[in-house]
């Protein structure tokens, strides 16, 4: 019998996902604290744009960017660019 590995056990996958989703939420909570602390000038915050001062700007930008990236690749680029594997040999 082959050795069981970490992710062979679905419970471990589930644990990993739980940890991951919690981290994501914690990051957003941390951002709230950070905004409060920088608004009260406890921490100096250097921003180049007003956008950056919004809660979770980087988080939501990253999320939206990646979803759009995948959707554009899947629904626009792939239909345009995909060819048979031996396309060049024909």
């Amino acid at each position: 019998m082959e050795k069981k590995h970490v992710f062979d056990d679905p419970r471990n996958v589930k644990r990993l996902l739980t940890v991951f989703f919690s981290t994501v939420v914690i990051l957003l909570i941390l951002d709230v604290f950070y905004i409060v602390l920088s608004k009260t000038h406890v921490i100096h915050r250097h921003v180049n744009y007003k956008w950056e001062e919004f809660w979770g700007f980087y988080a939501f930008y990253g999320f939206v960017a990646c979803v759009i990236l995948v959707l554009v690749s899947k629904y626009i680029l792939r239909p345009l660019a995909k060819r048979e594997e031996d396309y060049y040999d024909k």
Partner: peptide
């Protein structure tokens, strides 16, 4: 900000 950006890319 960088950690947020990356974790939410991973979330996507």
């Amino acid at each position: 900000s960088q950690t947020e950006l990356l974790f939410f890319s991973a979330l996507a």
